[in-house]
Amino acid sequence: MAGITAEASWFCCGNAWGPCGSAGHGACGTCNSGSMQHAWPNTSDACYAITRPDSCGITGMSRRTCGFRHATTSLCTGKRIVTSIADCGPQTDLFCGERSCCGGNCASNRVIDFTPAAFSALGLSLSSGLSPVSIDVA
């Protein structure tokens, strides 16, 4: 699969404080907010049935299972990180067509969700919450 351009956001996991307390360690049982990890919308049939990227017209979303590594480059800061799959998400179908831009770079559709550690490692602000990225196999 060639690199895809998409919107990225962040989520918390690992029984941390606040509303994250009930989140647990994600679909893979390994997710922690402080680790370099991400959620992927096609980790299993059950996962795909929830996230439904196809409903946004994204086809050929590869099945990647727990621990699989993706390299992501921020189209905002140019920083690149390698993270592994630790959960199922984001709910791509809820945000079809949504676009975020940085400089002259824009991306549509939410395909990846990072832990706060990984999202901030991309040089992105947790308070802005959304950013365009380019995703590749690590």
Binding site: N32, G34, M36, P116
Partner: peptide, 28 residues
């Protein structure tokens, strides 16, 4: 490394504060 905790990042609850030094208990 992918999947590992990032040493330059911290997450948790503030358990103590001594002037501008915070003690934080991570969920991990």
């Amino acid at each position: 490394d992918a999947g590992q905790p990032d040493p330059n990042f911290a997450e948790g609850l503030i358990m103590g504060r001594n002037q501008d030094l915070l003690q934080v208990q991570g969920s991990d």
